[in-house]
């Protein structure tokens, strides 16, 4: 499985050619890029203030004035969904970056030093992984109290073992590679070998995993917020917005929950399509 960065770079040059052959993955890239741009431009293109309440226009069905309708306080759902991109992308990417950083550090140290350190670190990871993921995240978020940073920490923590195991297994493979031995031979320090030679070579599979994890992180964040353990009102987070519509579903105001949920589904699908596509790219056997 060729997974070095030069290999990826070579692949990137034929990116457009490749997009034509992998329309599904390209679609994933398109979705995430498009949503990212919409999120950045949200304050410019959102027709209403996402925090503005307008009691006179409560619970109106979608129309040209309010593309996605209005919520129980008369808030414009379209504007809130647009602003939600910033929040949900922020939580998802934040959780993945923190989880990735912590997990790979653990995995790299365990894989590089081996022996007792390896044993202790990996048994600790086993314990964290023994919990059903969402339930552990729920417990941590519940304990720390509902806020965006706590939500990010909870989700990141749950994913630490994933990255630790992945980076460790990559490391065991490349630790004894010729180039690592050569670096050791010319007297490079542990730290230099780790950061300069081994890290770049174990990045690709970890990167693929983190794209997939972004989707999961956003789903978990929305789920936690939905049951009141994450982001709070009036922040325009998608999970919270879906939660607001729960009592209105049986009376027929579907749009309050529908559009924020659609946004989650499209986002997660985008990340998953990219992740799946990259996995196929790195591992031709999967095709």
């Amino acid at each position: 499985m060729p997974t070095s960065l030069p290999y990826m770079r070579e692949k990137a040059t034929s990116f457009f050619h490749w997009c034509r052959r992998n329309p599904v993955t390209a679609l994933g890239f398109g979705i995430i890029l498009g949503l990212g741009i919409l999120g950045i431009l949200a304050p410019l293109i959102a027709p209403y203030d996402p925090y503005a309440l307008n009691p006179r226009e409560r619970m109106q069905a979608p129309s040209w004035n309010h593309l996605f309708g209005t919520g129980i306080f008369g808030e414009d759902i379209f504007s809130r969904v647009l602003h939600g991109i910033r929040i949900d992308f922020g939580i998802g990417i934040g959780a993945v970056v923190i989880g990735l950083f912590t997990g790979s550090t653990v995995g790299i140290i365990a894989g590089y030093y081996g022996g007792k350190i390896d044993e202790i670190f990996m048994r600790l990871m086993d314990i964290v992984a023994a919990f059903p993921g969402f339930i552990l995240a729920m417990a941590i978020a519940g304990v720390l109290g509902p806020s965006i940073p706590n939500l990010i920490i909870a989700i990141a923590f749950v994913n630490v073992p994933v990255y630790a195991r992945l980076s460790r297994s990559r490391f065991l493979v490349i630790r004894n590679s010729l180039y690592a031995m050569a670096a050791r031979g010319v007297g490079a320090s542990d730290f230099r070998i780790l950061t300069w030679h081994l890290l770049p070579n174990s990045l690709a599979p970890i990167f693929v995993q983190s794209t997939l994890q972004c989707g999961w992180a956003i789903l978990d964040a929305a789920g936690l917020s939905f049951i009141g353990l994450g982001v709070h009102l009036p922040t325009p987070e998608w999970g919270v917005m879906i939660g607001l519509g729960v009592p209105r579903i049986i009376t027929g105001q579907w749009w309050i929950s529908f559009f924020p949920g659609l946004a989650i589904a499209v986002t997660v699908m985008g990340f998953n399509l990219i992740g799946d596509g990259l996995q196929d790219l790195l591992d031709p056997k999967r095709r």
Binding site: L219, G223, G239, I242, W254, G261
Partner: peptide
Amino acid sequence: AMPVFWVSLV
């Protein structure tokens, strides 16, 4: 990709 609680509501 679809959140379970959202599918429930739909």
